[in-house]
Simulated assay, not measured.
Amino acid sequence: MDLNLLRTFVAVYESRSLTSAAARLYVTQPAVSQALTRMRRQWDDPLFHRVGRTMEPTAAAQSIYPSFRDALMTIDRALDAVHSFDPATSDRRFTVAMSELGEIGYFPALFAAVRSAAPGIGIDVVPLDLDLLPDWLARGTVDLAVTSLPISGAFEHQVLKSERYAVLMGQRHPLTADGTDGKTPALTMDDYLRADHAVVAGDSGRPALDAALRRLGAPIHPAVSLRHFASLPPLLSAPNPLIATVPASIARGWAETWPLVLRDLPFELPGVEISLLKRTTSQHTAALDWFHGTVLRALRGDPGEFSSIGARNPLGPGPDRMVP
């Protein structure tokens, strides 16, 4: 078996496109088509069927792909040991999928770590789409992803941190009023459910919160759904009855500069794990291994820098009030 045929097969399988496979292999599309014709004769199977603009694998192709991919990765890593990837001279580009919070909180540290060792490397950040992410990682559309939700597929992943959630509200919210003993009472479940909620539609940790509330038989129906986290501080600081359930690390930063009060959730919610996922495709394994290791070391345990979210405070600084 010609090794180049195996590379072509894996490239077509992962990209589902003759054009994309050709670009990955640095050959022409006719060359890929010719290689595919040879493979079809050799295996006596069509291997791929064109469905619209996509090359969909046959059952035979699906059965042999894992073994061929693993074999190629083993061969490439052996070759890389002789001709190692040199980040200092590389001009490769990598693609990372991140949420809005991930891009704001973690990308500066990621970029600094990568560029300090590889000044010529470029990084593209794409918005996190949880529905498409398994396909992106399987086809190599993205190299890495930072997400707080588990996704389908056997992708290598490492936990970067565990994020807890808290309740945030304005200092003039009725739920901040002191009780008859002069102390602020703990937020009750009834208080939480009766309140008007503001949510951020793109919060990747929200499904875990919603699932916990469904298990309690107490789903909430938000009064306001926003697109960006930066909209929350001025909205909650205004005289209205809204509350928001947000990552505690962000809430603490806002409570230092905005007239906001931070409260504990009135129910148990395990910390939401934020993980780094790695693509499974076989191309450029040495470069991917270096990039993945560099990003992992930069972000693991990093609390993130979220002070820029909603940093402008037209109402003046407020005290850091964490009410138990």
Rank of each mutant, 00 (worst) to 15 (best):
R115F: 06
A223C: 06
L209S: 00
A230D: 15
E100G: 04
M39V: 13
L260R: 01
A113F: 08
D196V: 05
E256Y: 04
L25V: 01
L209K: 04
P207G: 02
E256W: 07
R300T: 15
H83P: 00
T37P: 07
Q34V: 11
S33G: 14
D196Q: 14
V224Y: 01
T280V: 12
I151G: 09
G140T: 02
T245F: 00
R300E: 12
L175E: 05
P127D: 03
A11Q: 08
R312P: 00
V272D: 12
E14C: 03
L160P: 01
F229L: 10
P174Q: 11
G217Y: 09
L265R: 02
L262K: 11
F111C: 06
T37F: 09
V224A: 06
G318V: 09
M73A: 14
R252A: 12
E156C: 04
G316N: 11
Y65D: 01
H292K: 11
P87E: 10
T184P: 11
Q171C: 12
S15T: 15
A138M: 06
F229V: 04
S307I: 10
Q62S: 13
D210I: 06
M1D: 08
A166H: 02
S67W: 04
P234N: 02
F48K: 03
D289E: 14
L18I: 00
D76F: 08
R115A: 09
P127T: 05
L128Y: 04
N240R: 08
R24Y: 01
V159M: 12
L276D: 13
F94P: 01
A218I: 03
A255E: 01
R24K: 12
K278L: 14
H83K: 00
V125H: 05
A35F: 00
P219S: 07
